[in-house]
Each structure stands twice: as structure tokens, then as C-alpha cells.
């Protein structure tokens, strides 16, 4: 697509804010099969040293790539590689929920040996002013 022509390292290609509630966590638990009670029971979360119920790391990883998928015209098949490090918990308050913001920036532009143009998109996912994912990188096919 023409939107990708003239793309430069450092360009912000997508931004989105996600509002999470306990309901979001329960839906993710059911959809993924991850029923660890630290994602829906405060008493259990506190008993293992957490401040309270937190989002599944895989939910944060799953939603953080969505702005990039949308930028790719909705074609998640153009995601060639996606990695993150889980660095901080996203605590989801029972009443207030939690807001996670994602900024996606071009990190590297590269042409593969077979001639395919790719980009490494670097994600910054933040909650409460602090990043929650480290080395969050999505390699995508541009054509």
C-alpha cells in the first residue's frame, strides 16, 4: 500500500489506547484457556506477593500487536515474527480498570534475500506511565 512508501526509521506508524477491565481478563482466560486465578482473584494474587489481580502477560502481548495489524490493512498474516519480554505487571483495578497505551515505531527497514521488503516495528506499551513490555518487536512483511 502507498502508505508504506517513504517509510523512515523512527516514524510512528500506529498508536492505540486500550481500556482493560476485569471483564476483559475473564474473557481472555476463557478464550486462551489460561485460568490462573491471579488473573481474577485478588486474595490469591495478594497471597503470592502481588498487589492484586493483574492482566495475563499474553493478553498484553496479544493486544499490543493489534495497532500494527490494523496498520497492515488488517492482515495479521503479514506478521513474520513477534517477541516481547514481560517486565512489569498491569494491575487491573476492580472498579477503575487499567489503561494500556501502545505506540508502534519503525525500528529497522530491511530487504530480505528473496527481495521481500520488511520492517521491524518497535512497540512501547505503557501502563501508569511505565513500560510493561521490553524488547517488544514485530517483524512484518511490507508487501
Amino acid at each position: 500500500m502507498s502508505a508504506r512508501e517513504g517509510l523512515a526509521v523512527g516514524d510512528v506508524v500506529a498508536e492505540r489506547s486500550f481500556h482493560l477491565t476485569r471483564d476483559t481478563l475473564v474473557r481472555y482466560a476463557g478464550a486462551s484457556g489460561d485460568f490462573n486465578p491471579i488473573h481474577y482473584r485478588d486474595d490469591i494474587a495478594v497471597s503470592v506477593g502481588l498487589d492484586g489481580v493483574l492482566a495475563h502477560g499474553m493478553l498484553t502481548m496479544g493486544l499490543a500487536v493489534q495497532p500494527v495489524v490494523d496498520w497492515l490493512g488488517g492482515d495479521s498474516g503479514k506478521v513474520l515474527d513477534y517477541q516481547v519480554r514481560f517486565t512489569r505487571p498491569v494491575y487491573v483495578d476492580a472498579e477503575a480498570g487499567a489503561d494500556v497505551t501502545v505506540v508502534a515505531k519503525v525500528g529497522v527497514l530491511e530487504t530480505l534475500q528473496d527481495g521481500r521488503a520488511t520492517a521491524r516495528i518497535d512497540l512501547t506499551a505503557a501502563f501508569g506511565g511505565e513500560t510493561v513490555l521490553g524488547k517488544a518487536q514485530v517483524r512484518v512483511a511490507l508487501a
Partner: peptide
Amino acid sequence: AVLATSPL
């Protein structure tokens, strides 16, 4: 559940 909106 991962808040995807793509029709694909």
C-alpha cells in the same frame, strides 16, 4: 479477547 478489530 485480544481486542482485535480486523475483519480478517
